[in-house]
Design a protein around this nucleic acid. Structure first.
Lengths: 243, 243
DNA sequence: CTAATAGTGTCTATTAGACACTATTAT
DNA sequence: ATAATAGTGTCTAATAGACACTATTAG
């Protein structure tokens, strides 16, 4: 039998049909209490002029690094949660060649408007309900990312990744409301968040100002050390989700 | 600006460095009340002679189809649950070239011993705790697959994918016990399963024989139409999982 | 007979959620 | 003053889990 070294010496990668691998990022943030996704306007073919998720070819780097790089090219990265979502590889999803796209999901605190960069003519945050008709199969990718985000808020403390370093319980509640698209009972939410060990920890400080329409000055919290919420913070059950 | 048609005519895929995409499958089943994973012994370089997850290069097909095909080559596929797990693409994870592996997770009912096929010298079911020292980064892939499987049993009815068409509540309980590695209280489990709408439905029939050590003849059930378990069937909480 | 299992009853502690209430602050 | 908010109290229904109990069957 051939040794591994002999095998590698005789191996020519060009014997195989050419494929490409890209990363695409579903980057989410909350702006004005609305869940928004980062879109770019494509300057290059294919789909020039269409809106798409930010992304690009993977270089000599890990997939995580590629996703972070593509995101950095569009927006100043601060604290950021980044996780792999799913890989899309149907033949024909890109007209150029066989392209596999590894999609990532990112949660970002509210940021300044992004700066266009790389091959994008422009980049901007768009409320998710207005993000339709995207290039490639990005409508599907976005839908999968939103479903993952909604589920993750239930059993992980990732909602804090949408907030700044310090936040109030009300701000956290508005994040949940924006992602889930449902109002949450303020009193019950407050008690629930504080009852989950490690979700948030008090800073001992208080906001310098109350909300625009009055009320006491709320206490400030920061993210705790829990990686999972136990018990979970379940979204209101809807019968038709189960069958 | 170039039209999309002009762009495609001048586009040569060979201008880009060559990469390959494979699928690897974490196929799980229950044998003798133990959770087992399907492994192959590699006949070809690299890692010839090592054990690995079954898998291979993606052809002109969807990723799902590739995973199903690779699995069929090793074992007779029956009812089977198949879902995408995660993509692994660190530079250097394959000594030949840049290889991205899209991992899949499969749940199968107990099957006959698999037949070796394709580039595998042999294929067999191995208890998961004995599946260590695998080729490539497959130890990591397996660990990720196991964690996903354990989590999915909590909030989906996928445990039924490990059972035959008809099964008893005790068989279902032993599936949970094997995947989670914990004994479950028989009485409470029984009541819980029947209380979740759509998890299982009665067949009206009864097993022809009781268990080996006596007891009443159990009723037979089949999988119901629920896609999610509500309320979920949570595994016993362990403090250190949360921080 | 003996021992194990299938399935049910009951009790307790925990939790989700509805509702109510007080104190505080912006306008 | 008015209205909205932060935070807490209380009650009810649902649930998880501990424990107990009966009936049934293999050996």
């Amino acid at each position: 039998m051939q040794s591994e070294a002999e095998f590698l010496a005789g191996y020519d990668p060009r014997d195989y049909p050419s494929v490409a691998v890209t990363v695409d990022v579903v980057a989410l943030t909350i702006r004005d209490d609305r869940l928004c996704v980062l879109l770019v306007e494509r300057a290059e073919q294919p789909f020039a002029g269409s809106r798409a998720l930010p992304g690009g070819f993977v270089r000599d780097e890990t997939l995580d690094a590629a996703a972070l790089r593509e995101l950095s090219e569009e927006t100043g990265v601060e604290r950021l949660h980044l996780e792999q979502l799913k890989t899309y590889g149907d033949p024909g999803r890109d007209p150029r060649m066989r392209v596999f796209s590894v999609a990532y999901l990112a949660f970002a605190p509210s940021l300044a408007d992004p700066t266009a960069g790389g091959d994008a003519a422009g980049a901007y945050w768009v409320p998710v309900e207005q993000a339709v008709g995207l290039a490639f199969d990005h409508d599907t990718v976005l839908a999968d990312g939103l479903e993952r985000a909604r589920a993750k808020l239930e059993y992980t403390p990732l909602a804090t990744a949408f907030a700044g370093d310090e936040f109030t319980i009300s701000e956290l509640r508005q994040i949940y409301a924006a992602v889930w698209g449902e109002e949450l009972h303020a009193g019950n939410f407050h008690r629930k968040v504080l009852s989950v060990p490690g979700f948030v920890e008090g800073t001992g400080r208080t906001a310098s100002r109350a909300s625009e329409r009055g009320g006491p000055k709320p206490k400030l919290y920061r993210a705790g050390d829990a990686r999972l919420l136990h018990p979970a913070l379940l979204r209101p059950a809807r019968e038709d989700d189960f069958r």
